[in-house]
């Protein structure tokens, strides 16, 4: 019986086959449990309301209502999606199975994270429906496409950053509830910092402003694509994925 094993990649390079298998399994288990259904339902119910209310009541064709509230909603929903990613493997002991396969801990973390990211991006992509509604309602000239796409990009990046925070707290122990609460707290702090920045004196204020979400989100929502904002989100994602890998490598659960 011939047994074909794909080319082993050298150390330090991702094992694409395993990352793919883990991501696919993560995504599938979201849909096979009520997790994805409940999350998508809550997400579209609330965003739908936030979108529709101003549109019909005050006839404002914008995504403004979403920008203020959706990050908070994500601070709640994303940890619910990520809390089990590693905590569950640690609890059931399957982490030991994963960690003794020919994989680096980075492969495991990345595979799990990409599975989450796929569901999150599907979620955000659904918001394009609202943009299309706006395009139909408003006069085409009145619609700022840069703002629209910037907003969607901002929300997508916010969720990706929150997801990295969530997978990190999920690596801390076997308890999913603890992972959820801690991830929510960190995400909430990022959410609230930007709003308090204005109340703080000069230097401190600008630091807090940079750490908080709002300033970056606002730039994107204006349709301004600034590399500093992209670096902000990318470094959040990388930092927390890195911390997750460090945490797993310590093997103290």
């Amino acid at each position: 019986m011939e047994c074909q094993i794909s080319n082993p990649s050298p150390r330090g390079v991702f094992q694409a086959h395993a990352v793919k298998a883990l991501a696919a399994r993560t995504l599938r288990s979201y849909f096979e449990s009520p997790t994805a259904t409940v999350t998508l339902f809550v997400f579209y119910l609330l965003t739908g309301y936030l979108f529709a209310a101003p549109l019909f009541l005050v006839k404002i064709a914008s995504l403004r209502g979403l920008i203020d509230f959706v990050p908070l909603l994500l601070a709640f929903l994303v940890p619910a999606l990520t809390m089990g990613l590693l905590a569950e493997e640690l609890k059931s002991g399957t982490f030991e199975t994963l960690a003794t396969l020919p994989l680096e801990d980075w492969d495991i973390v990345l595979g799990k994270y990409l599975g989450f990211a796929a569901l999150h991006l599907v979620c955000i992509a659904g918001l394009i429906f609202y943009v299309l509604v706006l395009a139909l309602c408003a006069s085409p000239a009145g619609l700022d496409w840069g703002e629209m796409l910037g907003t969607l990009l901002g929300l997508a990046l916010t969720g990706l950053a929150f997801g990295a925070i969530g997978i990190f707290t999920s690596s801390l122990g076997k308890n999913q509830v603890v992972a959820f609460v801690m991830a929510f707290l960190v995400c909430f702090v990022l959410f609230i910092l930007g709003k308090t920045a204005g109340l703080l004196p000069g230097g401190l204020g600008s630091v807090v402003e940079y750490i908080g979400l709002d300033a970056h989100m606002d730039n994107l929502a204006k349709g301004v694509l600034d590399s500093r904002d992209l670096v902000y989100f990318a470094s959040l994602v990388f930092t927390f994925l890195y911390l997750t890998v460090q945490r797993l490598q310590a093997r103290r659960f």
């Binding site: 395993a18 298998a21 399994r25």
Partner: peptide
């Protein structure tokens, strides 16, 4: 330890995929 939510052959396929089959 096993992945409880998978069906038996799925679990084996998953193990195989992770192994690079």
């Amino acid at each position: 330890p096993l992945w409880e939510d998978l069906e038996l052959t799925e679990a084996l396929h998953f193990a195989g995929r992770l192994r690079g089959l």
